[in-house]
Simulated assay, not measured.
Amino acid sequence: MADRPALTLTDVVAGYAGPPVLNGLSLVVEAGHLITVVGPNGHGKTTLLKTISGLVGLRQGEITLDGASLGGLRPDIIAARGVAHVPQGDMLFPQMSVEENLQMGAYAERDRHVIAERLDEVFVRLPKLAERRRQLASTLSGGERRMVGIGRGLMMGGRVMLIDEPSLGLAPLVIEQIYAVIADLKASGRSILLVEENPARVIGLADRIHLLDNGRFVWSGLPDDLMARDELLATYLGG
């Protein structure tokens, strides 16, 4: 039996003022799968995630979550329906504590018991945050800040997580720690659409990979297959 689609994009065209940034993108994130989009900087990866979460307007095409259209909905409604966006960079409230930042992810949830359960899950999956729960976000290391961002996404309770360049600006050892967290999230059954610049980081983790250039997918397939395509890597990712 085929895997059930959680998130589907069909012929998506989107952008800011002027010409579109995304030009007819289609992809499927099956339930429980991790799909990765790689490509050069400035070619539409972040815009793709922002379009799904409603931060960039959808001009043409269709985006569905569990078969229900997200097109034209406000970002808060899209989040409430189950899309949890972990943006590029930290995007934390620096003068709020770790726990307060995490709770901001559950702003749309009114059930205190649900919020408490989600917070417990975050602290189990990210025990370092439990140690830092009273600490101001401004005092955290880069890796800890990134973990708070992921934890805040978990607090949203989404059906699908959109994670934008989780390794950006981090040291290699910290990147390994972040990807261990992402692997754990996938193992728990979460559906994930991940944006990354380096495809080597998702070997053994991604179920499928899409190479994005100038707003179009120029290649799609398995991560191992992309890593064997030296010409593609050299042309689009610098080797």
Rank of each mutant, 00 (worst) to 15 (best):
L27M: 13
T10I: 14
V29N: 04
V29A: 15
T47I: 10
L22R: 03
L27T: 04
L49S: 11
L27Q: 06
G15D: 06
V21E: 00
T46W: 14
A14E: 09
Y16S: 07
L49V: 15
V12L: 13
A17N: 09
V12N: 03
E30L: 01
G24P: 10
V37F: 03
T36A: 15
I35K: 02
T36I: 09
L7F: 11
G42M: 12
Y16G: 08
A14H: 04
P40S: 14
L22H: 02
R4W: 02
A17E: 07
H43R: 15
K45N: 04
T36Y: 01
T36N: 07
V37N: 00
V21H: 02
P20D: 05
G24E: 02
L27G: 08
R4T: 15
G44Y: 00
Y16R: 05
H33N: 08
P19S: 12
L48P: 09
V12C: 13
A6K: 08
V28C: 14
G32M: 05
G39H: 12
T8E: 15
G18R: 13
P40A: 15
T46F: 14
P20R: 08
V28E: 13
V12Y: 02
P5S: 13
T8G: 01
N23F: 02
N41G: 10
D11S: 15
P19D: 12
N23A: 14
V29T: 04
S26N: 02
K45V: 00
A31N: 01
G39T: 13
V38S: 01
P40K: 15
G39Y: 07
V13P: 00
A6Q: 11
G18I: 12
G18Y: 14
V38R: 01
V38M: 10
L34Y: 01
T36Q: 07
T46C: 12
P19K: 13
T8W: 00
V28W: 03
A6R: 07
S26P: 06
